[in-house]
């Protein structure tokens, strides 16, 4: 038990003194996962909207693939992105392996299917006649899509939260494509793994608490957005 209490005390100390290294790691985590979520939102909606609004052969297959993609293991993504970005790989010319860009890319690959899958299901759960009703009110096609997204805003924000939650907490891909390089690609999860393996539990505790606080804060903001403007 002493180990835990001692660890927590040390952790609080690190947090309250605003250790520069810890701060840098935290901000990088937020930046990488935030950008990855944003990119995934664009890609996810870009896939979900046309799939939800159109009937085409193979639609079920696409939906099944998306749903499978929601469970992509980060290490598998990490492996493929590493191979793609390797010096002799197809995207080697970008020279972004072991940089935050590579981590953003990998995390976007992880979050896009999550956001696409949940958004698709959100759009499919709208009342079947709603699209016709919106058109009958004189909406153009872009206006119709906008009204549908607005109507599905609660589950869509849940999709964003699930996507962000998936990437802020993953470690496999980040460590593989980022390399956990101090001052460059070290984020909260990779640092926690490293500190724990080194036996520096107090630092690991501090990092974990920060990770939880970060996840909570971002979700609190999103939840606020989600529940705001809801007429009573």
């Amino acid at each position: 038990m002493d180990l835990i209490w001692e660890g927590l005390r040390k952790a609080l100390e690190l947090l309250l003194t605003l250790d520069p290294e810890v701060l840098r790691i935290t901000l990088l985590s937020l930046e990488v996962s935030g950008l990855a979520t944003l990119i995934s939102l664009v890609i996810g909606l870009g896939v979900a909207i046309p799939v939800a609004l159109n009937e085409f052969p193979g639609k079920r297959l696409v939906i099944a693939l998306l749903n499978t993609g929601m469970g992509l293991p980060p290490v598998v993504v990490g492996l493929f992105v590493t191979v793609l970005l390797w010096r002799n790989g197809p995207l080697g010319f970008l020279e972004i392996l072991y940089t935050p860009s590579a981590m953003i890319l990998a995390q976007a690959v992880i979050a896009s299917p999550i956001i696409a899958g949940i958004s698709l299901s959100a759009l499919q759960h709208l009342p079947p006649g709603l699209r016709l009703q919106i058109l009958a009110l004189g909406a153009s096609r872009p206006q119709m899509v906008w009204l549908l997204l607005k109507e599905a805003r609660l589950p869509l924000l849940a999709a964003v939260m699930a996507g962000f939650g998936g990437v802020i907490s993953e470690v496999g891909a980040s460590i593989m494509v980022g390399g956990n390089i101090k001052g460059q690609t070290r984020v909260l999860t990779t640092a926690t793994v490293m500190e724990t393996s080194k036996g520096n539990f107090e630092v690991a505790f501090a990092l974990s608490i920060l990770l939880l606080v970060l996840a909570f804060s971002v979700n609190a903001v999103l939840t606020h957005l989600q529940q705001r403007n809801r007429p009573r």
Partner: peptide, 19 residues
């Protein structure tokens, strides 16, 4: 498309927006 702005329709299900 021009016609869609000159007619309108009400369905059995009121299909109101969450507003």
């Amino acid at each position: 498309e021009a016609y869609r702005r000159r007619m309108t329709m009400v369905f059995q299900d009121p299909l109101l927006f969450d507003a």
